[in-house]
Design a binder for these strands. Structure first.
Lengths: 122, 122
DNA sequence: TTGACGCATTCCGTTATCGGCATACGATTG
DNA sequence: CAATCGTATGCCGATAACGGAATGCGTCAA
């Protein structure tokens, strides 16, 4: 309904592959920026920018340690994403996707056999 | 490491609130485009465009029924998202986030008590 | 205090994204 | 056949996102 403030949303923050990778790294323990730069092989400003986005949605938090800033993961906002997808878990677990495949093939068969229209009603 | 083909990725497709809403609707059953237009209150072209993105990542599939195109959900690509977030589930369940909060406050307290710099060592 | 270090921020150019509008196109109806 | 319905696509303008390079700023060492 409402426009989404693009960047202030965990879904959006996580849509960036580098940001997911940063989260994956921080999941194994807190790290200063320089560490991330080295591991990821990105330029330092880009890493800082990604961290900024992650900070804005509260997916990471920072602590100053001398002249370095140590980031750590805050998994809480991921719960929202998890809850959303979890609602679909049932669907693929119960092989409804397989049923879809079968339906697809059935319809192909039928249309070559007898041109049978299917009506849908909701 | 590699650049992400922005739109050909389930994470990205799902980052759009309208697209999530479309998926939520289709989770309750297949629907023709016109239905979605009415329910969502969006202009028809926008709905078609969002459906196109969802189709490109195989989150929805279409079936022609006369002059209308009936869309249905294909939950399979969501599994990738689910698997990724599920890896973090342990983290918020075990109240590690709560521990973070406590740590934050401890550091605040210390710095107001005696202007004590906190040293951290890794 | 000066200089180096660690990180954040800014500016720039490019590309992607999104909504709005018009239009094209196949299927149906008359 | 022409007119209409249901959808998809193309074009436009505005805005956001991203990488790169330069720079700002606080902290530490000499």
């Amino acid at each position: 309904m409402a426009r989404a403030a693009t960047t202030s949303d965990a879904f959006n923050a996580v849509a960036e592959p580098w940001r997911r990778e940063i989260l994956d790294l921080l999941a194994r323990g807190e790290r200063p920026v320089g560490d991330l730069v080295r591991v990821l092989g990105l330029a330092q400003p880009q890493v800082s920018k990604h961290l900024r986005v992650l900070r804005e949605v509260d997916l990471v938090r920072a602590r100053d340690n001398g002249r370095q800033r140590v980031y750590r993961l805050n998994p809480a906002p991921l719960k929202g994403i998890h809850d959303w997808v979890a609602g679909y878990e049932r669907l693929w677990n119960e092989r409804f996707d397989l049923m879809d495949e079968v339906l697809d093939e059935l319809m192909l068969d039928e249309s070559t056999e007898g041109e049978n229209g299917n009506d849908v009603d909701d």
